[in-house]
Amino acid sequence: MQQVYTEDQQLIEQIRKGNEKSVVQVYQSFKGGFIHWAQLNYNIDEPSATDAFQDAVVCLYNNIIKGRLENLTSSLKTYLYAIGKNIIRKKLHQPVMLDKDDLWIVEHLKAEPIDSFAANERQQLVARLMETIGEPCKSILRLFYFKGFTMEAIAKEMDYKNENVAKTQKLRCITSLKKMVRDKFSGGDFYDD
């Protein structure tokens, strides 16, 4: 019979609704245990274990927002440790054995170190340009791409008349970001859409 992880499920619901404090709560709840466990089992120092765990929490968040983690089949701790193990394996190149449950989690979720989320020069440039994009673009893009809000919810949050206004504004923001990227890359080698 499948075990029910009510408390963990509630935390996940809070994160899905955009409550960022719940992400920090998850991080602080499991961090100490993970670091201790990682140092005990692998040849890594505390800063590396902490860094791996931070990546694991970010991955968990991303999976929740992207709808890859609807209902828990294990405890939140099991998910975090499986993702964390995979990150130690890949980022710190440690010989980590993943058991059957870990493998299932890693295969069903995105469980990569965050550095591999964006690898190429253009993606890195976009990330840097995001620092300068200003409002309301930063908020709209954050709500849509990072918090998984619908356009209707964004319109409500940002006080727009309706979701079409929010959509148009989002499109303007993306277009403006693309223009900034093109301006940085000389030669205009991108297709002008």
Binding site: Y27, D55, V58, I114, A118, Q123, Q124, V181, D193
Partner: peptide, 27 residues
């Protein structure tokens, strides 16, 4: 154009996940 659009979206995502990591470090 497709590659460019994908890079822009992934770059945006990358920016925000790095921000989240900063928040965790800050905590």
């Amino acid at each position: 154009s497709v590659h460019f659009h994908r890079d822009v979206l992934q770059g945006i995502e990358y920016y925000f996940i790095k921000e989240l990591k900063k928040d965790l470090i800050q905590s």
